[in-house]
Design a protein around this nucleic acid. Structure first.
Length: 274
DNA sequence: AACGAGTCCTGATCGC
DNA sequence: TGCGATCAGGACTCGT
């Protein structure tokens, strides 16, 4: 599922190809994934607009348009955003097709439809609650000192649950939460309030490390994820715990265990993570 | 406040 | 071979 590294990879892939391109036509838009505005308003607002510099905030892709609107895409679990030649066959579950003046098409595909598409002025989207508040991003300078001295540090929630909270750290999902906890040698069930200052520092550093390493490998592909050109990433091979329940811990050799924490399958080493 | 449970959804996988 | 059950989970809602 696309988390921060996968979304970042897509954004970096698409950015140079979209910048300055005119959105010639909305070939199709599925109202089921378009959260705002209506399909007709979307068409009127989008057609003719020119793409600015593509950006990312947490797991959200932001495409500023010359009209002042932002085209915002969240990929959910199975979403892909790819640039293809218009002649390429349109795959099933393609919910948005934007024709560019370059002859290429920007296509959003999402079999499970957990993702969403928004269009409008950012302030408006935010005020309408369509863009939720996000915490600091592990790739950003503002992440230094995370998580600060706020209520997170005294929370009784499991640290795994805290990592999945986008308001605490933007862009972290189930895969990289487990990877960061493993790298920081912290047990996912630990109440957040039980972590020492140095353990928080270790966890923050681990988040940044696992995200950067996954970006270097162009993201984790084990099911639906594809980069901006439809290719797979290579980070799956380097995962230490996610998807490795029952397999030996690469550090101590003992079997990794799976537990359900915060409603998510969580894999960790009972020996190495305390 | 914070937790679990339910919801949305399709495809991969498994047991029979 | 086929079919039903199960599982995967991001973000949201609802109930406790």
């Amino acid at each position: 599922m696309p988390e921060l590294p996968e979304v970042e990879t897509i954004v970096r892939d698409l950015r140079p190809h979209l910048r300055g391109r005119r959105l010639a036509a909305v070939l199709s838009v599925n109202p089921l994934v378009l959260r705002y505005p209506s399909a007709e308003s979307f068409r009127v607002a989008a057609e003719g607009a020119v793409f600015g510099v593509l950006g990312r905030r947490g797991k959200f892709i932001h495409a500023p348009l010359s009209s002042g609107d932002q085209l915002v895409v969240h990929l959910g679990m199975t979403g892909t955003l790819t640039l293809e030649h218009g002649a390429e066959p349109v795959r099933a579950h393609t919910h948005l097709r934007l024709q560019l003046d370059s002859g290429q098409e920007l296509r959003y595909r999402d079999p499970r439809r957990f993702g969403r598409v928004l269009l409008g002025p950012e302030r408006h989207l935010r005020q309408a609650g369509l863009l939720p508040p996000l915490g600091p991003d592990p790739l950003d300078r503002t992440f230094v000192g995370w998580p600060g001295n706020g209520p997170v540090r005294s929370s009784g929630r499991a640290v795994k649950a805290v990592l999945l909270d986008q308001e605490v750290v933007a862009g972290c999902g189930n895969i990289y939460a487990d990877e960061a906890l493993y790298l920081a040698r912290l047990r996912p069930t630990r109440p957040a309030s039980s972590l020492s200052a140095s353990q928080w520092a270790r966890l923050g550093a681990a988040l940044t490390v696992v995200m950067k390493e996954a970006i270097r490998r162009r993201g984790t592909s084990f099911s639906d994820y594809r980069d901006g050109f439809g290719a797979r990433g290579e980070a799956y091979e380097s995962l230490m715990v996610y998807g490795r329940s029952g397999l030996p811990c690469v550090r101590c050799g003992r079997s990794l265990v799976a537990r359900r924490i915060a409603g998510r399958t969580t894999v960790y080493c009972r020996w190495c993570q305390r």
